[in-house]
Design a protein around this nucleic acid. Structure first.
Length: 423
RNA sequence: GGAGAAAUGGCAGAGUGGUCGAAUGCACUAGUCUUGAAAACUAGCGAGGGUCACACCUCCGGGGGUUCGAAUCCCUCUUUCUCCGCCA
């Protein structure tokens, strides 16, 4: 959510910047400013009425105490009208505040100045590429074929248990998953992130805090009876640890990492490009989350990008980094870098990580603040990134590491797996 | 699942209808003293709205009600604790 003050101060600049998202904010912003004026005017009136009431109440108290009951009763009558008025004004104020909130929720974050204009993933800007694309055996297979051949992932069995998009990992497949989780967590802890274990279900307030609610309800599984949501990413529970908190400036940078399963309903989109592990309803992910001083958040973002580069280098996977264009940028992000691994067997790039700075957009919803040097509360910046999403890393490893003699396990993972090859 | 108790500022903890945004202690910040630190002393020290700045308004777990007036009384929800039951 954008800060109201920011809209008051820079409506034009915000409108211009949001054009990069192909989002026309003109009428929304005007409506917001108008409602804000109304809200403040109502507040002022209400305050004056309440002040008058408070004064009278005090006088009545004094009169009763000094035994002047009659005079007190005269004053009492005067308060009746004030009471009615403050009730009316209070209702008006609440309505205005709610409407204002609804409108504010509809405005996406303002893109960073470096975000390129554009509407689809075609317009994303490749800023870095590294790693050798291997030459595969002539009969190279995509990962879903490999999974079947070596009996390490069973998609049909998952259909029986839950449905499409819920794979069952078997034997070395399961062990490789566990190895990847441990490896990623270890890398993150080594880089200074504190490991956390968090709930996999969250309440509505948490969904609102990080921006999945109110409008992306359909993407999360909802447990109606208890009104809880299955998390679509660890970002939600981890970032919400800081909801309604005022952190100490000295505590920056705050760096957390967590492994969680992620649940996504992902309505729609079926076909060849979502085969196998490419798109799932349940998958595993290790996430990194940072809370930063505003002046350091972009340095932190660069640091996160470098950290993920290091992991991919160690895994020896060919990858590239993209700066997302305005049209592809998530609703709450100001700047996002996507990481993609090249899948030789599928002959396409697979997104395996997304690293974003939300600036104070989430913090404003979360009421996540810190005290500045003058003792004033300021909104912090939040960032997060996947390090990494398991299924597509797994797909990338299976496909890029296939040889005549089966699938080789990347060297760094061997100590975690306890085996060197599959097949 | 059943019975009882409770929820107040960063923490602990007073406050049972008016002068209470709230005593006191601890913690924290600044100053005095000190070579420095500690101790002692002095001052400050919740959040949000509003204002150029004041004023002023709101908030004592959430929501609703009674009253001229609510941290205090009533209803309701949530959470925590104790006891019993069940259980990985």
């Amino acid at each position: 959510m954008l800060k109201l003050q920011a809209i008051r101060d820079g409506k034009e600049a915000i409108t211009t910047a949001l054009k990069k998202r192909n989002f026309d904010a003109t009428s929304l912003l005007d409506a917001i400013l108008e409602l804000d004026d109304k809200r403040r005017a109502t507040q002022t009136k209400l305050d004056a009425t309440l002040a008058e009431s408070n004064k009278l109440s005090k006088e009545i108290g004094m009169l009763f105490k000094t035994g002047k009951a009659q005079e007190a009763n005269v004053l009492k009558e005067k308060t009746v009208a004030l009471k009615e008025e403050s009730k009316t004004l209070g209702d008006e104020l609440n309505t205005a505040a709610e409407e204002l909130q609804t409108l504010l929720y509809q405005i996406p974050n303002v893109p960073h100045e470096t975000v390129p204009a554009g509407s689809t993933d075609e317009d994303n800007e490749e800023i870095f590429k590294e790693g050798e694309i291997p030459t595969l055996v002539s009969n190279a297979l995509p990962h879903w074929e490999l999974a079947k051949k070596h009996d390490i992932i069973d998609f049909e069995l998952g259909v029986k248990i839950a449905g499409a998009g819920f794979p069952v990992y078997k034997g070395k497949g399961a062990r490789l998953q566990r190895a990847l989780i441990s490896y990623f967590l270890d890398k993150n802890v080594e880089a200074g992130y504190t490991e956390m274990q968090v709930p996999h279900l969250v309440n509505e307030a948490s969904g609102l805090g990080t921006g999945q609610l109110p409008d992306k309800e359909g993407q999360m599984y909802h447990v109606g009876e208890d009104d809880l949501y299955l998390i679509p990413t660890a970002e939600v529970p981890v970032t919400n640890l800081f909801r309604d908190e005022i952190v100490n400036e000295k505590d920056f940078p705050i760096c957390y990492t967590a492994y969680t399963p992620c649940f996504r309903r992902e309505a729609g989109s079926y076909g060849a490009h979502v085969r196998g592990l490419n798109r799932l309803h349940q998958f595993d992910k290790v996430e990194i989350v940072r809370v930063e001083h505003p002046k350091n958040s972009y340095t932190a973002l660069d640091g996160m990008v470098e950290h993920i580069k290091n992991i991919l280098r160690e895994l020896k996977l060919p990858y590239r980094v993209l700066r997302l264009c305005g049209g592809d940028l998530g609703f709450t992000a100001a700047l996002t870098f996507d990481f993609e691994v090249f899948s030789t067997a599928q002959d396409r790039w697979l997104e395996i990580s997304s690293v974003s700075n939300f600036e104070n957009y989430q913090a404003n919803r979360l009421k996540l603040r810190y005290k500045d040097e003058n003792g004033k509360s300021q909104l912090a910046h939040t960032l997060n990134g996947s390090s990494l999403a398991l299924p597509r890393v797994l797909a990338g490893i299976l496909e890029n590491y296939q040889t005549e003699d089966g699938i080789q396990i990347p060297e760094v993972l061997v100590p975690y797996c306890g085996f060197e090859t599959i097949g």
